[in-house]
Computed example of a mutant assay.
Amino acid sequence: MSFSKFIGRSLLSSMFVVGGVNEFRNAEKMTGMVDALKEQLPDAVSGPLGTVDSETLVKLNGATMAAAASTLALGILPRLSAAVLAAQMVPVTVAGHPFWKKDGAERQGNWIHFLKNVSLTGGLLLVSATKK
């Protein structure tokens, strides 16, 4: 593993390690977003998810995010780790930054965070598609 790849993966992972730990520790504060997202899902998806409480889903997402980011930073299965993180970004971005439902400054802030997440997802997809 080259030093520059280690630094690049570590920098990319930092947001996910911190975010994952934060989600896990503060899951109760994020359940409203998950509940709102569950209501928008088709029955085929929301049925199985409906049996799991939202706080548990947030904790599971946070733990998975922190673990995948850590393995990505360390170069342990980096392609798989990046793919897991990229897949997680879809519901996280839709639930966390619905700029289309906001107005004014709140819309602008959500738009910026939405684009940040799209950009991070692009970086993760590059890692997941890159061979050693």
Rank of each mutant, 00 (worst) to 15 (best):
G96T: 04
K59W: 02
T71L: 10
P42R: 06
A95T: 03
E106A: 15
G32Y: 08
H113M: 15
V52L: 13
A87K: 01
Q88Y: 02
R107P: 01
D35L: 07
A69Y: 02
G19Y: 00
V127D: 02
N22V: 11
K38Y: 05
V84D: 06
A66W: 00
K38T: 03
K59F: 00
G122K: 07
A82S: 09
S2I: 07
M33N: 08
F16A: 10
K5N: 15
L60A: 10
L37P: 01
S46R: 08
W111M: 14
L72W: 07
A83Q: 11
N110V: 01
G19E: 04
A129H: 10
G109W: 10
I76A: 14
T93G: 03
G20H: 04
G20S: 06
L85V: 12
L80P: 11
E106N: 11
G109K: 09
A129C: 14
V34E: 05
G47V: 07
L37T: 03
T121G: 14
G62V: 02
S14P: 03
L85T: 08
T51G: 12
A69M: 08
G75Y: 09
V127I: 10
M1E: 09
N22A: 15
L11K: 02
G50K: 03
V17K: 02
A69S: 09
S46D: 00
A87C: 10
G109M: 12
K116H: 12
E106W: 10
G47P: 02
Q108S: 13
V94A: 03
S46L: 01
G104P: 00
V90L: 12
G75V: 04
L125T: 04
N26H: 13
A68Y: 05
N61E: 12
M89Q: 06
K59M: 07
R107H: 14
A27H: 07
T71Y: 07
L11N: 12
L120Q: 13
I7A: 15
V18D: 14
F99E: 01
R79E: 13
K59C: 04
G122V: 11
E106T: 12
K38I: 09
Q88S: 09
S2Q: 13
G8Q: 11
A87R: 01
N117G: 13
P48Y: 05
G50I: 01
S70D: 07
A36N: 08
L80T: 15
A67D: 08
V90M: 08
T71H: 06
L85H: 04
T130L: 15
T56V: 13
G123I: 07
D53Q: 05
S119H: 01
V34Q: 03
S14R: 05
H97Q: 03
Q40R: 13
A69P: 01
L11R: 14
T51I: 10
S13Y: 01
W111Q: 11
F6D: 02
